[in-house]
Computed example of a mutant assay.
Amino acid sequence: MQGLGIPHAWANVIWLCRPLSGLLVQPLVGHMSDRCTSRFGHRRPFIFAGSALIAVSVLIIEHSANIRWLLDDRGCIHVWRILDVANNMTQGPCRALLADLTGNPP
C-alpha cells in the first residue's frame, strides 16, 4: 500500500473497506436480484455485470502505473474500491444461484 502512496497510518482503514462494502453491497444486490425479471434469470445479469467490473478493475490495476503517468500524477486512482464492490456484487448472486439450482434436499 505504501507503493501506492497510501500512508502507513491508513492501512487499517483500507482493510476495513472490504467488509464494509460487503455489508452494504451484498444485501442490496441480493434484494435487486430477487426482484429481477430478466429473460436471463434472476442472478445471471448481476453475475455478468460483477464479473465485467472485476475484469476491468484488474486491467486498470495492472496498468495503474502507466495511467498515473498519463495523468501526470495529478489524479489518485482508487480502483481497489471498485474491485471490492464488484467482488461483493458477484459473490451474493453466485451463492443464491447455487441455492436456486440445487433445490430442496430429499
Rank of each mutant, 00 (worst) to 15 (best):
N12L: 10
F48I: 15
R95T: 12
V13T: 10
V29N: 13
G30T: 13
P7G: 07
I47V: 07
S57V: 03
P19I: 13
A96L: 11
D84L: 11
A86K: 04
V58Q: 07
G103K: 10
F48H: 05
G5P: 01
R35H: 14
D84R: 01
H78I: 05
G5H: 07
P7I: 11
S33R: 09
A55E: 04
R18V: 06
L83Q: 12
H78D: 00
V79M: 14
V56K: 01
M89H: 03
I60Y: 00
W15M: 15
R81F: 09
F46G: 09
N12R: 06
I6R: 02
P105E: 08
C76T: 03
L97P: 05
L24F: 10
P45H: 13
A65P: 02
G41W: 11
P7H: 14
C36T: 08
R35I: 08
Q26H: 00
P19R: 15
N88H: 14
D73P: 02
A65E: 04
A55L: 15
R74A: 04
E62R: 12
L4W: 12
W15V: 10
P93S: 00
D34C: 14
I54G: 13
W80H: 04
D34L: 12
S38Q: 08
R95Q: 08
P45S: 07
W10E: 07
A96N: 02
N66F: 12
A9E: 15
S64W: 03
V56N: 05
Q2A: 04
R44E: 11
Q2F: 07
L53W: 10
L16N: 10
A96C: 11
A96E: 03
R68W: 03
I6Y: 02
E62L: 11
V85N: 01
L101A: 03
G3L: 10
Q2Y: 04
C17N: 12
R18I: 15
N104M: 07
P7T: 10
G103N: 06
A96H: 05
C76N: 09
P27Y: 01
E62K: 08
S57H: 09
T90S: 08
R44V: 13
I77M: 04
A52W: 14
A49H: 01
I61F: 02
R95D: 02
M32L: 15
N12Y: 09
R44I: 15
L53V: 14
L16K: 01
F40C: 04
F48Y: 13
L28N: 10
H63Q: 08
D72G: 00
I77P: 00
I61L: 10
C17V: 15
F48E: 00
H78Y: 05
G22S: 09
R43G: 03
L97T: 10
P105F: 07
V58D: 07
T102M: 00
V79G: 03
I54M: 11
G75E: 04
G92C: 06
R81V: 08
N104D: 04
W69P: 00
V25S: 06
L98V: 13
Q91S: 05
L97R: 14
N88R: 05
P106R: 10
V25G: 12
N88I: 00
H8D: 04
A65H: 13
G30N: 07
H42M: 13
L101H: 07
G50I: 14
P7A: 13
N87P: 02
L101V: 06
